[in-house]
Amino acid sequence: MSTSQASNRRKPPFAVVTRPGSSLRNKTGPWGIQKPVWDWEKCTGCNTCEAICPEGCIRHLEKKQYEADYDYCKGCGMCAAACPVNAITMTTEHR
């Protein structure tokens, strides 16, 4: 730890500290059946889907291309509902 480089000190007591970002081990993808699929032809690159995703698992690839990380996507469908040009479809056939 930054404040105590000395190795002879004890570790923090059990369960007092948790490592940052350790939630990544919890794959929430199986929570939902439907997943979003983008029609990049329709996409305008407005970034709404990426901005509103509660999981933060949608990424911007290029100007008008987005995709979701199905390992974490819970399938809520907020991105599809909020897309101003209906470029996102919720589907079970996403693989």
Binding site: M1, S2, T3, F14, V17, T18, P20
Partner: peptide, 26 residues
Amino acid sequence: NPLYRLDPEDPYTLGAFVGPEAYHEV
């Protein structure tokens, strides 16, 4: 000289929610 502290350089989570699988041991 704290063993751990709130520090963006080493950002630990303090005060987690602990379930029955570990609270007893805490």
